[in-house]
């Protein structure tokens, strides 16, 4: 589904990603962990098409197509969804209008008619229930005045509306209370189809109790320095990142 080869990228001339290779197959869940500032969100931004990040080397192939050539909106319509670490507040743009536009753009791309107003509202209602989001939030402006947790739930709600093939969830668990975490994780699991995949960026093993990954990667200083099964997350939780950093630094010295 997704093949990343030796990806290097910079922001304002500063190298952030320093050669990442990763393959995500249909149906798989990959977790990416790693210390603050190691480049996890930057990787997510490259995959979603953020212009701010410049790719300097490497390739990303998505279902056989060159992903890096597509504008962000096309990636979305091709089934990539990014759950933002920091969802953006957009005053004056209503959630309803935002989602209606997005859903209908997706439908147009697939050659479908736009949804009628009543069908759309019905769909909104169903998906709201699925992620147990407060009904009133959908009547407000996009993320405006939402609490941290509400914003994260709203990301999952949008994901439910757009039904992606590859979901990239950037710290969707941060800032959630225990119940909200369970709701969000359940939502993700319910939305998961056998052939859809997810990349879950997180700092906490906790989330991975609910969303069980096939593989866990550790990103450090713009590189994937360790890849293992789900037990790696437990180990990191216990020991932190120091031992990995040491291993890497030793290798660099050698």
């Amino acid at each position: 589904m997704l093949i990343i080869k030796n990806l290097k990228a910079e922001i304002n001339g500063k190298a952030i990603l320093k050669g990442i290779s990763l393959e995500v197959k249909a149906g798989e869940i990959h977790a990416i962990m790693g210390p603050n500032g190691s480049g996890k969100s930057t990787l997510a931004a490259v995959l979603a098409g953020r212009e701010l990040v410049t790719v300097t080397e490497g390739s990303v192939t998505y279902f056989g197509k060159n992903l890096l050539e597509m504008p962000p909106e096309e990636r979305s319509k091709e089934g990539i969804f990014l759950g933002f670490q920091y969802p953006i507040e957009i005053p004056g743009v209503s959630m309803v209008n935002f989602m209606k536009t997005a859903v209908n753009e997706h439908r147009k791309y697939k050659g479908l008619e736009p949804l009628s107003a009543s069908d759309f509202l019905k769909m909104m209602r169903e998906k709201k229930e699925l992620v147990e989001i407060d009904s009133k939030l959908a009547n407000r402006s996009v993320n405006e005045g939402f609490s941290g947790g509400e914003k994260k739930k709203n990301e999952i709600f949008q994901m439910a509306m757009l039904e992606p093939r590859l979901a990239i969830l950037d710290e969707t668990d941060s800032g959630l209370d225990i119940d909200a975490l369970r709701i969000v994780a359940n939502g993700v699991n319910k939305l998961k189809r056998p052939d859809s995949s997810a990349i879950v960026i997180t700092h906490y093993q906790r989330l991975l109790d609910f969303i069980i990954p096939d593989v866990v990667h550790v990103l450090y200083d713009g590189r994937i320095v360790k890849t293992a099964g789900k037990e790696l997350a437990l180990e990191l939780e216990e020991k932190g990142y120091d031992w990995i950093k040491k291993e890497v630094d030793k290798k660099d010295l050698a």
């Binding site: 990636r75 979305s76 969804f81 753009e105």
Partner: peptide, 23 residues
């Protein structure tokens, strides 16, 4: 970028932002 990342074309996204601003 947020709007685009949901499948909304840049031109349309710009319009939505300006509209929201005015609204």
């Amino acid at each position: 970028f947020y709007l685009q990342s949901r499948g909304i074309e840049k031109r349309e996204a710009r319009l939505m932002l300006m509209f929201g601003f005015a609204h």
